[in-house]
Design a protein around this nucleic acid. Structure first.
Lengths: 242, 242
DNA sequence: CTAAGTAAGTTGGACTGTACAACTAACTGT
DNA sequence: ACAGTTAGTTGTACAGTCCAACTTACTTAG
């Protein structure tokens, strides 16, 4: 930051009394629920002077310079406050800043996206899950949160093509068909069973546990994520449609 | 942004008089010069109260809420001020914010990265090119700019594996061996000639011009980028060296 | 005029991994 | 026993890379 070469406009080198943008952090929290990709949203407060009262929005809020050591900690704090989840997959998505996105003035938000398993998540009362259908959300959101969410969905889909990210949406133990189904729910298209198995198994990211999932048909091997939780990058995408 | 659900710490809902972080934009500007990947750096000013006086840093500075409509415009402005380039490849890299990265207080920077051709770039006197060797810069940088640059290099390398990004480093007309050489300079490893040609030509991103590059040996076909300047994404990476 | 040198561009066989589809395996319920 | 269902395997076709040898088109030295 701060490579201000000489005073520009209201920037007086050495003085810091020029106007500063509002600074916030927002979190796009994804999960698979009811066999669908869903996103966690909150309702804007209705108080005096609040922008977008009662409109749906991403969970987030102002950076607290006293409480938050850095941006990632701020995002983790907001995620925890809403869901109780403490160690999710949390990745920075980007930032959005402009004079017009918030009626209260020039503002910039740092957006993160998180993936959490279905079981995790004891929600606070003001947060609710909303399904992503046909790659987008039906509801309108406050601020430019619709743009941010669209960007998050696109990023998630892109990365799911060539990474192991969906593993972070899984419960501790799962079968290969379970995992494939999650890939398919996120990508919204079917994948080849044999190619999928080959790819995942040769990626050395999961290991079998000594149990089978039993059901009304042939039992399936249960797996869990290996210790090192870094996502795996494949050298090919799944063959794209068309 | 701004999903502050109720007052937290110094956040008083409806009031905006709590402390705000400093907000800056920094730009990592890459180019190929002298057959090497290089990055544009400036020297920090030496004035009273300036952090990291005379240290090398990324070009950047405070967001000017009066002058800059949004973050991308601010980044484009800083790029133009330093290089004169107006329509480069400009992509958001991420943001870095913490209590400790700037001695003047809690600060957050929005980092961008730009790719410009060798010819472009009439530099201002305070900016200079520095080579990236072995995937990193030898010099130490101010603030956390070393981290930001490392992140930019990694992102560039990752994307070069499976996109047409290096096309934005090329002059208006170039040969396929020219382009391959730029890929190789960024990735710092040799690529297969025949596979490279097959991939690039089938991507429908360049078109031949009715000219050949002549030299001391067999002439090479000249190409130019096609009109639509969106980067192309390949479904495979170049096979990695593992 | 020819021969050596060099870089551009092509060709072919081995290999890897996906696409597609048919197959076998293991269980439940009737 | 047998139909139904899902798990998991196998085999052929194909696409694209890897590797290496090859042809092509030019310059320059002798």
């Amino acid at each position: 930051m701060a490579g201000e070469d000489r005073a520009e406009g209201s920037e007086k080198s050495g003085h810091l009394d020029f106007p500063r943008p509002l600074t916030t952090v927002d979190v796009v929290i994804f999960s698979i629920r009811d066999d669908r990709l869903q996103v966690l949203l909150v309702q804007r407060p209705a108080g005096e002077g609040e922008p977008f009262p009662l409109t749906l929005a991403l969970p987030g809020g102002f950076v607290d310079v006293a409480k938050d050591r850095d941006l990632a900690a701020c995002a983790a704090r907001k995620l925890k406050e809403k869901t109780g989840v403490t160690s999710p997959y949390l990745e920075q998505l980007g930032s959005w800043g402009s004079a017009s996105r918030d009626p209260r003035g020039w503002s910039a938000t740092h957006a993160y996206f998180a993936l959490i398993p279905e079981e995790a998540g004891v929600l606070t009362s003001d947060a609710r899950w909303f399904p992503i259908r046909d790659g987008r959300l039906k509801e309108k959101l406050a601020f430019d949160h619709g743009d941010i969410l669209a960007s998050a969905i696109q990023r998630l889909r892109n990365k799911v093509e060539y990474t192991s990210l969906p593993a972070y949406l899984m419960p501790p133990e799962f079968t290969l068909p379970d995992l494939q189904r999650v890939y398919e729910r996120v990508l919204d298209r079917p994948l080849e069973k044999s190619a999928f198995r080959t790819r995942i198994l040769s990626a050395d990211m999961i290991e079998p546990v000594a149990k089978m999932r039993r059901g009304p048909n042939r039992p399936a091997q249960l797996y869990r994520l290996k210790k090192n939780s870094e996502p795996v990058y494949f050298v090919r995408t799944f063959n794209p449609p068309e």
